[in-house]
Design a binder for these strands. Structure first.
Lengths: 128, 128
DNA sequence: TCACTTACTTACCAAAAGGAAACTATAGGT
DNA sequence: ACCTATAGTTTCCTTTTGGTAAGTAAGTGA
């Protein structure tokens, strides 16, 4: 059974879990980060090509979910071939500093973490 | 096929995706937040009961992964029955402000987001 | 001898996430 | 008549995630 937007009202009691669950997927944070870096609105294929390895389907559902949450604005121009542009809303922009903070932390501590992982695996081999 | 710790070296090229992928699971952020709030180290069952709806298995793998990354320190006392205590490392503590920022953002914008979701669903019904 | 405790591990299973490829609409170009 | 382009949607499939329940170790107390 597929999960639909309507089913996302779980954890309604806990704002933190409810909201952060949304960013636990594979692409949301990346898309927000990307739209945040870009000064102007981006087209669908522009986003897809910049990310590189996202499927059309997943980009669509990611953007739709972000739109539903009010994080991303979708502007559809009724032309042919179609043109659709995406940009962060004020809400989306207000999240940016926080995930940028996370991202900077990740970059800064990447070495420490990978070394820790290797050490942990090595220790495991000795024990088993 | 199960994913083992050893297999986590994907996205090695992108620190952000590599590190943040780790927090995309159901429990990691919650466990860090919890250990961060607590002044003293916490025992396994203490963590489990505070969270409430986490399974033993998932708490074990979550803590192991955080330990492997160097975020959490595990202290094992060779007593019977066993006693194991967990607390954040300095690395783990350095992440706290960032996810606390996220959490506060989530609380602050929870209303806006749930309203946006409802509006989006309502609009969808009209169109289809 | 049996139950009880803690902190697990393991096997099995259901659900969810996500990828690949084909299909869609529509107009313009050749 | 066919190809191109954009931004999707749909179907089918595999992979990943996470839950349940049972089993494990090892000493203590009844």
């Amino acid at each position: 059974m597929k999960k639909k937007l309507e089913d996302y009202d779980l954890h309604a009691s806990c704002p933190i879990r409810n909201v952060l669950d949304r960013f636990g997927d594979k692409w949301s944070i990346l898309v927000i980060l990307l739209l945040g870096e870009h000064k102007t609105a981006m087209r669908f294929n522009e986003v897809a090509q910049t990310i590189g390895d996202i499927s059309q389907k997943m980009l669509t559902v990611t953007l739709r979910t972000l739109e539903a949450d009010g994080m991303v604005m979708r502007k559809h121009y009724p032309e042919i071939p179609p043109r659709v542009e995406y940009e962060l809303t004020e809400l989306g922009k207000s999240l940016l500093p926080h995930i940028n903070g996370l991202a900077q932390w990740a970059v800064k501590n990447y070495d420490t973490i990978t070394k820790s992982r290797k050490k942990f695996i090595a220790k495991k081999q000795l024990v088993s």
